[in-house]
Simulated scan of single mutants.
Amino acid sequence: MNEVKADGYLPSFWEDDYCQIEIASFENKEYILKTIRQISDLANNSRTDFGFTETFGRGQMPIKTYSKEIRTYYLDKLLTEFEFEKAKSINYDSHKILNCETGSIKAYGFSNFTIFFDTQDEFVKNIWLSISLIVSVRQYDLIQSALYCLGEECEMVLIDWNSLELFDLRDRTQIDKYLNDYWK
């Protein structure tokens, strides 16, 4: 069993959060917008007083993040340069501890913002976020700069499937629009 220091950075990840706030290749933009419209239509047509009568399975993106050949060490270096703490472990579904050093899922961030990614060989397979209230200007600036760098260098977008919004990470204004919902 992994030992986790009580004062260490231990991000939490629920199975249902996997790729709910996703960073994906810009080339998927049209597919993402089409999927957002389909989800909105389905939600509007299946809404009841108690929830929804239908669900929507998103499936895989046409251009997988893995095909971008983003190396794990590149993302590690990028995030640590922006002072994101590297997690040694992840609290998975509140009852299992995943080892980031030997497992395929990695996590970097702060107590209120984490970038997760899973790997296959030396490449990044998927990237997703967990975010809550951002309370310092410094942290906001580091998060914004890291996301912008991912957008510029890797041509990535952020999709929040919870709110059905798409943000181009090559545009600081769009990043600000997204992060402002989490700003104190």
Score class of each variant (00 low, 15 high):
S94E: 13
V135W: 08
C149V: 06
L164G: 03
K34P: 00
Y140M: 06
F123H: 11
I36A: 03
Q174A: 09
L164P: 00
G151C: 08
G51A: 06
N126Y: 07
K29S: 13
I39V: 15
L133Q: 15
L98S: 03
F123V: 00
C100F: 05
Q139T: 10
N44C: 06
P11R: 06
E22C: 12
I70P: 00
T80H: 07
P62H: 08
Q144D: 04
Q120N: 09
A6Y: 15
N112D: 13
N45W: 02
N162F: 09
D181I: 00
Y18G: 00
K68F: 04
F110M: 04
K96T: 08
L166M: 14
I39W: 14
F13D: 07
I32V: 15
L142F: 12
Y73K: 08
S89A: 14
I23H: 01
I143M: 10
D16E: 06
L10V: 07
I63M: 08
K88D: 13
T173L: 13
T173A: 14
Q144C: 04
I21T: 11
N126I: 01
L133H: 11
Q139I: 09
R58C: 04
T102S: 15
G51F: 07
Q38M: 11
K5P: 02
D121I: 04
S111W: 02
G151F: 10
Y178P: 02
V135F: 10
L158H: 02
S25V: 08
E101F: 13
Q60T: 09
E3R: 08
E155C: 09
Y140N: 06
G103T: 08
I36L: 06
R37L: 11
D160P: 02
D93H: 05
L166D: 04
C149K: 06
Q139L: 03
D141L: 12
E22M: 09
T119Q: 07
I159E: 02
M156T: 13
F116C: 11
D171P: 02
D16V: 08
V124A: 06
E15K: 13
D17L: 09
E15R: 13
W128C: 03
P62V: 11
W161T: 04
F13I: 09
E22Y: 12
I134T: 02
G57S: 10
A43Y: 11
G109I: 12
K29G: 05
Q20A: 11
E165R: 05
Y148W: 10
E101I: 14
I115V: 15
K88C: 01
K106E: 08
K125S: 12
Q120H: 14
K64Y: 04
A6S: 14
K184R: 10
I97N: 02
K125H: 15
K68Y: 05
F52Y: 15
S132K: 14
I175K: 09
L98R: 03
D16N: 08
K96V: 04
W128K: 03
N91Q: 10
C19G: 05
Y140V: 03
G8H: 09
I143E: 12
Y182M: 07
L166W: 15
Q144T: 00
Y9L: 11
L78M: 11
I21W: 06
K88A: 05
K96S: 05
L133R: 15
S130W: 09
Y178R: 06
S111M: 02
T48A: 12
T102K: 12
L169F: 07
K5N: 15
K29T: 15
D141Q: 15
R138G: 09
N180F: 08
